[in-house]
Design a protein around this nucleic acid. Structure first.
Length: 469
RNA sequence: GCGGGUGUCGUAUAGCGGUUAUUAUCCCAGUUUUCCAAACUGGUGAUCGGAGUUCGACUCUCCGCACCCGCACCA
């Protein structure tokens, strides 16, 4: 349901490329599906969102600890977490209509699409995790074990063919097993937190409830990445695992619902565009006892912005089982040992940025002309102030403006110099990148050291003295 | 991954089996300009990639790649 205030996705994509926020990944080489690169303004916006998150949830809280785990992890992590099993789907393809289906979800004797019988071959494993190898000989080994290569070779041999085929099958079976040198690019950042739970408890002795927070890249081999940065193969997550006593999970869950709404407001998202979806059991992840998806009215429709899940003690119990190390928490008041339960708010950074852009993108009609501007919250805007001389062919104005620019730059950092074209043109350009204030040095400045400050949203100007900037 | 569509300067576009590849805007340099995309001058910049057909391909054919729509997938 998008009302007329929701911008079109193509308008946002276009503005992002035109003004240097977000470009297609590997653009000069024709692109790479499912990847996006951030330009100068995009990375500024992205960092502002990340820093806001870190400040709100880590620095401003007194029971939160930050960590930053490696992307590559021991493969046992993913066996313990269930990802090796649940991220691997057996898929079958119909030789008649080429439809693809989960082999474990349909009757494979008959194609549900075209109705033909016995059109399915053997199921093939499809895993959403990117896999790579540790060690320098990895690729050589893969080449030797290529089934196609070996079969092609053996097709040329008449004698003992049968024996040789058997050998190929054995070798191939061996290579499709997960070798000791196989590692995965993490499909979620959460496990990097769980694997460090014990280290943090042993070094900081935090009181429950406490949380561990992390920001970082995650990778999923999506079948079809789509909708701009909404679903891509490489993305950034901001996650918190909040450890609670099992009796208190419901209270903590409700607290986090409120905090999530605070976060959405800090991003400048209107309350009426954010929706809670209680995820029914059948749709929940394998580890979760309760999940709320927070959805947002994106240009592509109402879709998930972030998730809040009660993960029980699923992860810590798994680590305890697989590693053999105790994950029990010892209360300082001498109470009984227990394995803490976990509330997990999980934020997608790119989705947050897309929501921010959606909420900020505004088109106004001014004198029959369209004015496009990004109504970004001040703390997220890539550029806070643009400084201009009213006229650039008057050296005294330019000189004074440069002084003001240097002063503001020292104070705020995110300040841009702009003397291109005429003043109206500069305002429009700054509008499009969401700069909240344009500071202009004019002839009056030379007399009384005051400048005009033009407001992005109202286009009104006020005159202020330089010292009060 | 399947089916359908699309692919020309940064953006938006025109056109053609043989062009100096059109126009606007953006961008850059300059003139001008006392507050909301004014004007003028000059400039950079594109046929998605690779094969094939042809004397000659941006144009036709095939194969890749990317994007859009639908299906499926979505821990």
């Amino acid at each position: 349901m998008s009302d007329q205030n929701t911008p079109k996705l193509e308008d946002i994509v276009s503005l992002c490329k035109r003004r240097g926020f977000i470009f297609p990944g590997s653009d000069v080489y024709g692109g790479l599906s499912g990847t996006w690169d951030y330009g100068p303004l995009g990375v500024a916006l992205k960092r502002n969102v990340m820093e806001l998150w870190w400040k709100m949830f880590v620095e401003d809280a007194d029971n939160m600890y930050g960590i930053d785990a490696a992307i590559l992890m021991n493969q046992k992590v993913w066996q313990a977490s269930g990802h090796v099993d649940t991220f691997t789907d057996p898929l079958v393809e119909c030789s008649n209509c080429h439809g693809r289906f989960r082999a474990d979800k349909i009757d494979t004797s008959k194609c549900p699409t075209c109705g033909k019988s016995d059109t399915f071959g053997d199921p093939k494993q499809f895993n959403m995790m990117f896999e790579t190898k540790i060690g320098p000989l990895a690729h050589e080994r893969e080449l030797i074990l290529s089934e196609e290569f070996l079969r092609g070779l053996l097709d040329k041999l008449d004698e003992n063919g049968e024996v040789q085929y058997k050998m190929v099958d054995e070798i191939h079976r061996g290579s499709s097993d997960v070798g000791a040198n196989t590692v995965y690019l993490r499909p979620e950042t959460a496990q990097g937190i769980f694997t460090n739970y014990k280290n943090v408890v042993d070094t900081f002795y935090p009181d429950v409830p406490f949380g561990l927070a992390q920001q970082g890249k995650a990778f999923r081999n999506e079948i079809s990445p789509r909708d701009f940065v909404f679903r891509s193969r490489e993305f950034e997550q901001m996650e918190i695992e909040y450890f609670v006593h099992p009796d208190n999970w419901e209270t903590a869950f409700e607290e986090w619902v409120a905090k999530v709404h605070d976060w959405c407001r800090a991003l400048g998202l209107p309350d009426e565009s954010v929706h809670e979806l209680e995820v029914p059991e059948a749709d929940r992840a394998h580890y979760s006892k309760r999940t709320i998806d927070f959805e947002f009215d994106f240009p592509i429709g109402r879709e998930e912005l972030l998730g809040l899940a009660y993960r029980t003690d699923f992860d810590l119990q798994n680590i305890q089982r697989v590693s053999g190390k105790s994950m029990e928490y010892r209360p300082k008041d001498g109470g009984e040992l227990y394995v803490p339960h976990v509330i997990e708010p999980s934020f997608g950074l790119e989705r947050a940025i897309m929501a921010v852009l959606t909420a900020a993108y505004t088109e106004d009609e001014v004198n029959d002309e369209k004015r496009i501007y990004l109504k970004l919250p001040e703390h997220l805007a890539p550029v806070k102030y643009a400084v201009s001389p009213l006229l650039k062919n008057k050296p005294e104005l330019v000189e004074k403006a440069k002084e003001v620019y240097a002063q503001l730059k020292k104070q705020h950092g995110a300040v841009m110099w702009d003397d291109n074209g005429n003043i109206g043109k500069r305002y429009r350009r700054q509008d499009e990148i969401g700069t909240p204030y344009c500071v202009v040095i004019d002839f009056q400045t030379l007399e009384d050291n005051t400048v005009t400050i033009r407001n992005r949203d109202t286009t009104e100007q006020t005159r202020t003295s330089i010292s009060e900037l």
